[in-house]
Design a binder for these strands. Structure first.
Lengths: 159, 159
DNA sequence: ACTGAAAATCGGCCTAT
DNA sequence: ATAGGCCGATTTTCAGT
């Protein structure tokens, strides 16, 4: 694991917000000149700290404005079942997140869909593929915050 | 709202995965030559269908490997309370998602943190800022899927 | 030796034909 | 669809600590 300093953190903060920024501009804002800044970005990519650069799309335009959380419980706690379930989850493009949880709920999914009808269709396809003992859906009414920006506040900056 | 055809969808599919692809390469994969492909990308950006391009970072490297969902209930259902709550949520960088929900839970948050101690610190800061009638935390044990790729399957491709 | 600035090359973006 | 100008990214070289 590579140690990050204040310059690195500033670079990451900027690129998390806007990956189209020219290196020269990043450098200026960070207080470096372009080459050292560019070298740092390369290192951050090699080290895997910058995982990838992606385009974020508009959900309404793609007819997927509705968010649904699905809490799943299973009676079959074994590796085989999990493999099958995980495969299903990865295959369904409307499932954007899936976590195995502690506590009451076994799995929590986040879906992105056009409407309730599409949720129903998803539900039917899911239970056709894997056995589930309990499924509870929770519809989001309003998105108050949704970001891909990770907090940098937990990194202890080196020197 | 602009109508999308198969070429547009292919472009979006590619850029959602990797926004660093040179236009020429996108064009080749999509089956267009570079200029028309470039113009399409411009239009998609102007139309806001491509919202932005961002860098995705590694959570472990940033000391934020733990995901916690927080279900919140309030007794104060008024606009003032919501404004205050929303402000708090936006201010806390460890809150990456927040939805107002239908049903039992009023709000569902997703946090990204180093450990349970950090969650406890967050909890204390949150309740110091806003009144909450009930707070339930759910810790994720394993991330099975987590993507910024939206499904394109709900778009009806024009001709 | 390491880190940053300056300069030169190279490749991809964008515009006009 | 092609070609050329232009800008930014990458590489190399140089200077300072």
């Amino acid at each position: 694991m590579i140690s990050l300093d204040e310059h690195d953190l500033k670079i990451l903060r900027l690129l998390q917000r806007d990956a189209t920024l020219p290196v020269a501009e990043v450098a200026a804002k960070v207080g470096l000149s372009t080459t050292p800044c560019w070298r740092r970005i390369q290192k951050l990519e090699e080290a895997g700290i910058i995982r990838r650069r992606v385009a974020l799309l508009d959900r309404s335009a793609l007819n997927a404005a509705v968010t649904v959380f699905v809490a799943v419980r299973t009676s079959q706690h074994n590796a085989q079942w999990l493999a099958k379930f995980a495969k299903a989850v990865v295959d369904f493009p409307e499932v954007v997140d899936c976590y195995r949880m502690s506590g009451e709920i076994d799995y929590l999914l986040r879906l992105v869909l056009p409407d309730i009808a599409a949720y129903d269709a998803f539900y039917k396809r899911l239970i056709a593929r894997v056995d589930l003992s309990d499924v509870t859906s929770m519809f989001a009414m309003e998105e108050i915050k949704s970001t891909t920006e990770l907090p940098l506040s937990f990194v202890d900056a080196h020197r």
